[in-house]
Design a protein around this nucleic acid. Sequence first.
DNA 1: TCCATTGGTACCCTTCGGAAACCATGAAGG
DNA 2: CCTTCATGGTTTCCGAAGGGTACCAATGGA
Lengths: 118, 118
Amino acid sequence: MKGDAFDPDCPTRLILDRIGDKWSVLVVLGLTGGPRRFTELRGLIGGVTPKVLTQTLRAMERDGLLTRTIFAEVPPRVEYALTPLGASLRRPIEAIAAWAEENVEAVVSARDRHDALA
Amino acid sequence: MKGDAFDPDCPTRLILDRIGDKWSVLVVLGLTGGPRRFTELRGLIGGVTPKVLTQTLRAMERDGLLTRTIFAEVPPRVEYALTPLGASLRRPIEAIAAWAEENVEAVVSARDRHDALA
DNA sequence: TCCATTGGTACCCTTCGGAAACCATGAAGG
DNA sequence: CCTTCATGGTTTCCGAAGGGTACCAATGGA
């Protein structure tokens, strides 16, 4: 931690913005079990619309986090798979997810307590 | 990882959304060295506007991640400090930040390569 | 009297995320 | 020959959220 993440022009911020996208996090988690097709991912990740999923996947492909492979078949088949770079994100992301699961209750009760005296 | 983070109604998603807020991450990092005042944080975190910083701090207070202490002085003084719950977020957040710093170069070069053939 | 400091608000505008509808391809079925 | 179906998106529209700038209240000090 060199602290330069505070500088808005530091590229590290750029990464935080990408990870800050909740869908990217879920895509990484969704692809940990191996390659998946568009519709598969769409079903796996509840609540994502096709437009936003496309945007997310394109951006992650652009950043080298995953590959997009088109098979010239009918009906069309497109597979998404994590690159080694994308796979290396799993560990920190799972750390966040684990924290979330452990502390959901504390956060929710804090929120309820706060709302109670509002 | 129970996998229920994929369920949009799972409270874990709620946490991911909060962490997904890039400003929250930077606030946690900014408060690791001890309590700070509003203007201090504002200066430390480059590029944040007062409105958004206020929103972020209020939401984090609501969720029990930090405390907001007002001193009845003139000029007014307000200190923000991490709660134990908020402090426990440091470890996973620093893991993400470390990943970002290690892999910034790879991501940026992937992006450049992609843009080159566009 | 006028100014400076602090911790915000109020206002406005641009952008982004989300919902719903639509589309091109081509094999398969009738 | 015409229709149907599946896939992997795209297009359009809308409301909400993000962000920039200006401003404010309180009070001590010059």
